[in-house]
């Protein structure tokens, strides 16, 4: 699978009178895994949501694979997102959660269940299919969330603080798994985190958002991996 080019130009998002994002420009090459650093509340999650289409910018253009998708609604953008607290659907079983995206794509039941089961095994949760998501541990839930997003093979994957809040051991374990999974699928990915080491371990390059407040500037490059 080939990841998409993502290009942000002049993105401005205002909220309650203040600019959270001010004329941000950002270019991500196909297949790149990019880390987005910065303290909480600096707007990096908002930037992710702009890419996903969950936030419509007040100004600026979002381009995916050369197409202007600024006004395209989220469900048609083909952008996958893993949320900080997973947002698993409590009224669906684990396998149904994972298969949800495939169901939306119109895949028939047996096929999507097979692919979902495949991915569950891939994230180390083979056989968890019928379990209720509310009974999953933190690490298990995180893996299900990943599987759910990746099973649909999105060309762009966004991860909002995916490993924040996990205990040290789990964190370190998942860092490696995450890096491996993202590179294996070949998708373009953006990870938001406040942990520079984490970004360094997973991403190809890291960028900072902390000097984004104020008149438009390009996101500062923190160096390559």
């Amino acid at each position: 699978m080939r990841g998409a080019d993502v290009r942000l130009a002049g993105i401005t998002v205002a909220f309650d009178g203040a600019n959270i994002l001010d004329a941000v420009d950002l270019t991500i090459r196909s297949g790149e895994v990019v880390g987005l650093l910065g303290p909480s509340g600096s707007g990096k999650s908002t930037l992710l949501r702009v890419i996903a289409g969950l936030v419509i910018p007040d100004a600026g253009v979002v381009t995916i694979d050369g197409k202007d998708v600024t006004r395209v609604p989220t469900h048609r953008r083909g952008v996958g997102m893993v949320f900080q607290d997973n947002q698993l659907f409590p009224h669906r079983s684990t396998i149904d959660n994972v298969a949800f995206g495939l169901k939306m794509a119109g895949v028939d039941r047996s096929t999507r269940h097979a692919r979902a089961a495949e991915w569950l095994t891939r994230v180390g949760l083979g056989g968890f299919g019928t379990r209720s998501v509310t009974q999953l541990s933190g690490g298990e839930a995180k893996r299900v969330a990943l599987a759910r997003t990746l099973v649909t093979e999105p060309s762009v994957v966004l991860l909002d603080e995916p490993l924040t809040g996990l205990d040290r051991e789990l964190h370190d374990q998942l860092v490696g798994e995450l890096a491996e999974l993202l590179h294996a699928t070949g998708a373009t990915a953006v990870i938001v985190t406040h942990d520079a080491d984490e970004a360094g371990a997973i991403a190809d390059r890291s960028l900072a958002l902390d000097d984004l407040q104020g008149a438009g500037s390009t996101v500062r490059d923190h160096g390559n991996r």
């Binding site: 949501r49 996903a52 289409g53 969950l54 609604p73 989220t74 469900h75 048609r76 083909g78 952008v79 996958g80 997102m81 949320f83 947002q87 659907f89 949800f100 995206g101 939306m104 794509a105 759910r148 997003t149 649909t152 966004l158």
Partner: peptide, 8 residues
């Protein structure tokens, strides 16, 4: 939002 990113 999660559901939307999954195509709903």
């Amino acid at each position: 939002h999660a559901a939307a990113t999954l195509g709903a």
